[in-house]
Every structure is written in structure tokens, then in C-alpha cells.
């Protein structure tokens, strides 16, 4: 499997662009970091890759075909602020099962207690709520996960708890993953390569359109 952006451009307002001429690809089994200063457009790029936003130019393809996003989206996103990505008026049970009937084993592995299922989102801590968002994103049909600062707001133990489960599943099911993060130590620990969006936007303005589409085309640095 391959998630690929071909020469995409996007802007929230007419006549202004957040980015232009971006091409990149992520393969199954790969974990890629996306970094860059805050506000440079990482979240926006992530949303376009996951199909939350339509590119103004170019195409996002899944295995060479446009992602139709019919049914459960095989490209799942997990956000930094879980409280903003669940419906506050739905009980947790309904939010979790919205996409797929989440299996008990996964809930158990994420340390989710059965009693939490009947609560409202505002009755859970950020760490607890984020576990549900992770569970919701990890259906058997998920091919790619885009984690946008998924554990930035969490303490070290909770971070390690969530990553342990996610990395296990990513490996076991050979999913591809993009993580948006600023944490160098985390990136070093888990990623295969890094894309620095800011560097891409600054250095390559005007010529970026010629970047080739090999996964390494946008490589800024390679981790050892």
C-alpha cells in the first residue's frame, strides 16, 4: 500500500496558499515524522492527506487511485486535543463505535475500563479520552494512521502506554504511519525518516514541483 500526494496545493482562503507543489509518499510498514515550526501547515497537510480537506491542486492517492473515502476511511487521523475530536453530546460508547465495533481486546490493551464507556467526554481526562480516539482509529481496515501530536499533552507514562499499543499494531498489520511531532527523542526512537515541511517550503519554493515522487524525494534527513 502507498499513500501519495501528487503535487498538491491547499489554502483556506482564495488567493492565499498554505502550501503548494507538495509531493510525498508513505509506504505500508513505514513510520515517517512530519516536523516544522508551528503554523507552517503540518496539520493542514495531514488533513489533506487524510481527506478531511480537499486539495485545491493536485491529487491524493491511495495505491494509485483517488481515495474515495466511501465507508470507513482507511486513512485515519488522531489529533492532539481529543476533547475537540469527539462529539461532546455523545456518550463515549457511541463515539467509539461510530466507525467500527471496537473489539474488547483492543480496549483492554489500551487500558480502557468498561465503566468509562458510559461516561460523557467531559468526565474523562485528556489521557483517558485520547485512548478512545486511538481505539476508534485502529480498525482492521485502517491502512494508514496520521497522528498529529497525538501524545503531546500527556505525561511520559501515558505516552509510553499509548505508543506501545499503536506501534505493536502498526507492525503486526503492516500499516503506514505519519506522526506530526516536535519531539526529537520520540522521533529518533520510532521513525524511519523525517520530512521537515518548513524546510521543504522554504528551500524549494518555485522548484519543488519537479521533485520526484519516490518516497525519498522529500527526504530532508535520514535517521540512523
Amino acid at each position: 500500500m502507498r499513500l501519495e500526494a501528487k503535487n498538491i496545493g491547499f489554502g483556506y482562503h482564495q488567493n492565499s496558499w498554505i502550501f503548494k507543489h507538495i509531493s510525498l509518499a508513505v509506504e505500508s510498514g513505514e513510520i515517517v515524522a512530519l516536523t516544522g515550526n508551528s503554523g507552517c501547515g503540518k496539520t493542514t497537510l495531514a488533513k489533506v492527506l487524510a481527506g478531511y480537506e480537499k486539495p485545491r491542486e493536485g491529487r491524493v492517492e491511495l495505491n494509485g487511485k483517488a481515495n474515495t473515502f466511501a465507508g470507513y476511511n482507511p486513512v485515519q487521523m488522531i489529533f492532539q486535543h481529543p476533547e475537540k475530536s469527539v462529539n461532546p453530546r455523545w456518550r463515549i460508547r457511541d463515539t467509539v463505535n461510530e466507525g467500527w465495533p471496537v473489539d474488547r481486546e483492543l480496549l483492554h490493551r489500551l487500558g480502557i475500563e468498561e465503566a468509562w464507556m458510559n461516561r460523557w467526554p467531559n468526565e474523562l481526562s485528556g489521557g483517558e479520552l485520547q485512548r478512545f480516539c486511538v481505539a476508534r482509529a485502529l480498525s482492521p481496515n485502517t491502512q494508514f494512521i496520521i497522528a498529529d501530536e497525538m501524545t503531546t499533552m500527556l505525561d511520559a507514562i501515558t505516552q509510553a502506554q499509548i505508543w506501545e499499543v499503536v506501534l505493536d499494531l502498526v507492525k503486526q498489520r503492516n500499516m503506514g504511519m505519519i506522526i506530526v511531532s516536535h519531539e526529537e527523542k520520540l522521533i529518533k526512537r520510532i521513525c524511519d525518516r523525517v520530512i521537515d515541511l518548513e524546510a521543504v517550503l522554504n528551500n524549494c519554493e518555485g522548484e519543488i514541483k519537479n521533485l520526484d515522487l519516490k518516497p525519498d524525494g522529500l527526504l530532508v534527513s535520514q535517521l540512523e
Binding site: G111, D155, A156, I157, T158, Q159, A160, Q161, W163, E164, E183, K185, L186, K188, R189, I190
Partner: peptide, 15 residues
């Protein structure tokens, strides 16, 4: 446990 859970250390949680 907090210290050991850091990505540069064990990156392992406690239950």
C-alpha cells in the same frame, strides 16, 4: 517509572 518511560530511556509504561 516516569523517568524510565521517556522515549530516550526504556519507553515502557507501568500498568
Amino acid at each position: 517509572a516516569l523517568w524510565m518511560a521517556l522515549p530516550e530511556n526504556d519507553f515502557k509504561p507501568i500498568p
